[in-house]
């Protein structure tokens, strides 16, 4: 008998890696040919993809169904505004501060939320986000309950903007869009890479084991508490970064929008569910479907949201693995394989 070895990659994943590299290369050079509105659309898609990947890691892999991720979007956004307005920090640097602020705040939050399980966790995280929204509304220096705008001087003198403006021969406002686009592309690619890397480590494997059969996992001594904690902190950091970036581009903030459960959690949940929860490909498919639906139907306002709710219910009831799950069932293709396969060489005769 030959000794087997473990492999994770598949033919389709190697193909996907080439496609992804090609996509990233095209995306980097896209601002040279693309117009402003396309870049803005892609910024929206990339930043939503960051949020959805983190929520998917929490709920789909970690079993932590949070309804309070808007807390970290909001805290990130406000940390960014606070450091720009009060500390005169460059906005590009302040995005990093946004991530760290969300991470720091996620420590006491985790202390509270990890005492809760299942539905209690969901409601608990929601209440914590509400507490933060109401708390930030008391912070008069950044506009209190009505919110404020980024000072023009800060956004005009932002790092790289002058260089981009000269390089592309465009106005500074267009240069800001290009910068935001690049940052969102970078954040999106890093997010997916980090999550994929984490899922293939032992800590990630612990999550799979507990998710697939928690009793069997416990019987071989797997403690997934640390894995879940790491996932929670990473998600807070990543969500905070995205929050800072999104509000750098919006340049206007208020507690109700930055801590909006609809924008930063409800949409995110629908995207993940429709695309396919518990896979890395699902959120990508979901965010594209979501963007299409939004471009086609957003003029219909409440009809659009009603449709989205009904689609979410239908997918959860009839195709709980989402669109990507249906596709994988038919084709067996995985672009980001995380399953370990045992390969045993055939016996020599």
């Amino acid at each position: 008998m030959g000794v087997g070895h473990i492999k994770v990659g598949t033919a389709s994943s190697r193909f996907a890696a080439w496609i992804a590299s090609g996509f990233i290369l095209v995306a980097i050079f896209l601002p040279f040919v693309a117009g402003r509105s396309l870049l803005q659309d892609l910024f929206f898609i990339f930043s939503m993809l960051v949020l959805t990947q983190w929520w998917n890691l929490l709920a789909g892999y970690g079993g932590l169904v949070s309804v309070g991720q808007q807390a970290f979007v909001g805290i990130g956004a406000y940390a960014m505004f606070g450091s720009v307005i009060l500390g005169n920090v460059d906005p590009v640097v302040s995005i990093l501060i946004a991530g760290f602020a969300a991470f720091v705040l996620s420590v006491p939050t985790a202390f509270l939320a990890f005492r809760l399980h299942g539905a209690y966790f969901a409601i608990g995280t929601w209440v914590i986000a509400e507490v933060m929204r109401l708390g930030v509304a008391q912070w008069k220096a950044v506009g209190g309950g009505t919110g404020t705008s980024l000072p023009r001087s800060a956004t005009r003198d932002m790092w790289f903007v002058d260089g981009i403006s000269v390089l592309f021969d465009v106005k500074t406002s267009a240069a800001r869009d290009i910068l935001a686009y690049w940052l969102s592309l970078f954040l999106m690619v890093t997010t997916i890479a980090v999550i994929y890397w984490f899922l293939r480590t032992r800590r990630g494997l612990a999550l799979f084991a507990v998710r697939d059969n928690s009793q069997a996992a416990q019987s071989v001594g797997i403690n997934d508490f640390i894995s879940k904690l790491i996932v929670y902190f990473m998600a807070a950091f990543g969500t905070g970064l995205a929050g800072g970036l999104i509000y750098l581009q919006k340049a206007r903030i208020s507690p109700d929008s930055a801590f909006s459960v609809l924008d930063w959690t409800a949409y995110v949940i629908f995207i993940v569910v429709i695309g396919g929860i518990g896979t890395l490909e699902g959120p990508i498919v979901g965010v594209l479907v979501f963007f299409l639906l939004q471009s086609l139907l957003s003029d219909f306002g409440s009809w659009y949201l009603m449709t989205l709710g009904v689609i979410g219910i239908a997918v959860m009831l009839f195709a709980p693995k989402g669109l990507w799950g249906l596709f994988t069932e038919r084709t067996g293709m995985e672009l980001f394989p995380t399953r370990r396969q045992l390969v045993i060489p055939e016996k020599e005769t």
Binding site: L305, G309, V310, M316, L317
Partner: peptide
Amino acid sequence: DILPPLLVTFGLSIALQNA
């Protein structure tokens, strides 16, 4: 699994509000 009831009733909540 606690996900399906949470997500279905969340979808219902959004649908009802907008209806």
